[in-house]
Write a protein that binds this DNA or RNA. Structure first.
Length: 562
DNA sequence: GTAGGGTTAG
């Protein structure tokens, strides 16, 4: 009887994810009674510690087990996955053979696949898949569902589909994993097709479809589906889909829509959920309502890294570098550890106001105090900071010290500074190097052309131009948009067909005159070189962003945010 | 003892 009582209590602990003291009391009683080492207690205890997230206790128990079987090993692997330690899952798997000579079963395979999915490691994932396929568990549908999910997360929807087709009894986990695979890789038609084909529609499948589309940059489609979901009266019993849809508003920078979704969130009672607050901060910041972002941020009770980082990045993007850095200090005081994204935001903030020393300190601290290996993005921000503020040699040294393959953006940052500061020799050296790479960004061509033209290297200028014309076919014209009320107005550069064209022109001319009175000199360095100065200025004058802002000023109620 | 959904950069 006593045995069943303890088993039941431990299983309750695992299910309800109680505190460690509850499990420890039960554990102590089991030791006292002398049955702690009897089957199945060791594994049940391990599972309880693991499910409640007490990694160290679980590990200690595992190490002290007199006998470890497949269940013990599988529980340990699950524990590591549960604690976001996929590398340890994979590492531990190897000692399974070495220490106890056990071969993986379907439970172990499921854990390994999950770890690969977490890492997004295709190579490892395929290795695990191959071993699974050769094992005697190769028909297990649960492992196959995990494989579908793994391929989905690695961005390989076709591989996912091949596994999906081989599942004989497809349950909801398999279907949603596959819908997610298509949605997150932007295969809209396939995702929606599969979604409609699925034998069920629930909040889960709607969420994977909508969030996948948001992740692949199809925010408008995601929104349409979200509206459809509400029309179908799906109960939003948890806020996951809402965080995705707020993210869509942020990506699309649609403030009015974002506010409406915010109202819905309040109505459904999810406003104080941390995920939601965080994404609302980001949404308001991206939609240029930094005051609203600040308000939401201020109301969050227990801020995590993402809350702080969203606010730091928001401030940085609005040119509020000092505020961003002050936020960082407060964050550290609060005992919150920054992550890689936080440092991108901080370096970005420094770079926009030329805080070189502070930037250097931050970069150093990121590596030395927090042990992060800088990513290409960190390097790009740092190089941008150094070169913008004239420390070109230091910037070049940093670039040369980067231990992996470089992209166009980092060279372009350095080259821009060479051009602006008249470092011709260094500029030519970098331009030659860039020319040997495959350039994708049209503005890099303009930059190259101008650098060569500045050095009177006309042959290279024409070479760049030729590359540009082949490129031009693919280039989409830039546009700007502005919201007023429920409508959005889109403008292209030099647009002359707008009904309010004259009003816009007059306002821009007025503003231009005022700006010049206050010392504005048009910076035409980004316009192609061989035009007359006047023509260059005209091109800047009709920039789509100016048209959009002018239109906003003309139409909006005074004091609204444009 | 195993499987599916959400946030910050780009």
């Amino acid at each position: 009887m006593l045995v069943f009582h303890y088993l039941h209590q431990l299983k309750l602990c695992a299910k309800r994810q109680t505190t460690s003291s509850t499990i420890k009391k039960l554990h102590a009683q089991l030791i006292k009674t002398g049955i702690a080492q009897h089957e199945p207690f060791p594994n049940t205890l391990l599972d309880a510690y693991a499910k409640c997230g007490f990694l160290n206790n679980a590990r200690q128990l595992f190490d002290e087990m007199p006998q470890r079987d497949l269940v013990s090993w599988a529980s340990l692997l699950t524990t590591y996955n549960h604690s976001d330690l996929p590398r340890r899952t994979l590492f531990t798997f190897h000692s399974m053979f070495a220490v106890d000579g056990l071969r993986p079963d379907h439970f172990v395979f499921a854990s390994l696949v999950k770890a690969c999915a977490f890492l997004g490691d295709t190579r490892l994932g395929k290795q695990v898949h191959a071993r699974f396929a050769l094992s005697s568990f190769c028909d297990d549908n649960v492992v196959k569902s995990s494989l579908v999910d793994m391929y989905a997360k690695c961005g390989l929807p076709d591989d996912a589909y091949a596994v999906f087709c081989s599942i004989c009894l497809k349950n909801s986990a398999a279907w949603t994993a596959m819908i997610s695979a298509y949605a997150r890789s932007g295969r809209k038609a396939d995702a929606i097709g599969l979604f409609q084909q699925a034998p069920f529609r629930n909040l889960f499948s709607w969420t994977v479809l909508i969030s996948g589309l948001v992740q692949s940059g199809n925010g408008i489609d995601a929104f349409r589906l979200f509206i459809k979901m509400q029309r179908e009266n799906i109960d939003i019993i948890d806020p996951l889909v809402l965080s995705s849809i707020v993210g869509a508003c942020a990506n699309l920078a649609v403030l009015e829509l974002g506010k409406q979704v915010h109202c819905l969130i309040i109505a459904l009672g999810y406003e104080s959920c941390l995920y939601i607050s965080n994404v609302l901060v980001d949404m308001y910041a991206k939609c240029s309502d930094i005051t609203a972002a600040n308000e939401i941020f201020g109301r969050i009770k227990h801020r995590d890294v993402v809350s702080w980082t969203s606010m730091i990045v928001g401030a940085a993007q609005h040119g509020q570098a000092k505020e961003a850095l002050a936020l960082y200090d407060r964050m550290v005081e609060d005992g919150i550890k920054p992550n890689e994204v936080t440092f991108v935001g901080l370096l970005y903030a420094c770079s926009h106001v030329g805080l070189v020393d502070r930037g250097r300190t931050i970069f150093k601290s990121m590596v030395e105090d927090y042990g992060f290996r800088p990513s290409l993005q960190h390097y790009t921000c740092f190089v941008d900071l150094l070169s913008r503020s004239g420390h070109l040699n230091e910037a070049e040294n940093v670039v040369n010290s980067i231990p992996f393959e470089l992209d166009e953006a980092i060279w372009a940052a350095l080259l821009t500074a060479c051009k602006d500061r008249g470092h011709t020799q260094m500029g030519i050296r970098i331009a030659d190097h860039l020319l040997s790479l495959k350039i994708e960004n049209p503005s890099t061509y303009v930059l190259l052309s101008n650098v060569y033209a500045g050095a009177c290297m006309w042959e290279n200028v024409s070479k760049v131009r030729k590359l540009m014309t082949t490129m031009e076919v693919k280039k989409k014209p830039g546009y700007s948009s502005v919201e007023f009320g429920k409508e959005t107005q889109v403008f292209y550069a030099g647009e002359t067909s707008h009904p309010l064209k004259d009003e816009i022109f007059n306002l821009l001319r007025e503003l231009d005159a005022e700006m010049r009175r206050r010392g504005y000199v048009p910076d035409t360095s980004s316009v192609l070189h061989d035009m007359e100065q006047q023509e260059k200025e005209r091109q800047l004058f009709w920039h789509s962003e100016r048209l959009a802002v002018a239109f906003g000023l003309l139409k909006a109620v005074p004091r609204t945010i444009i």
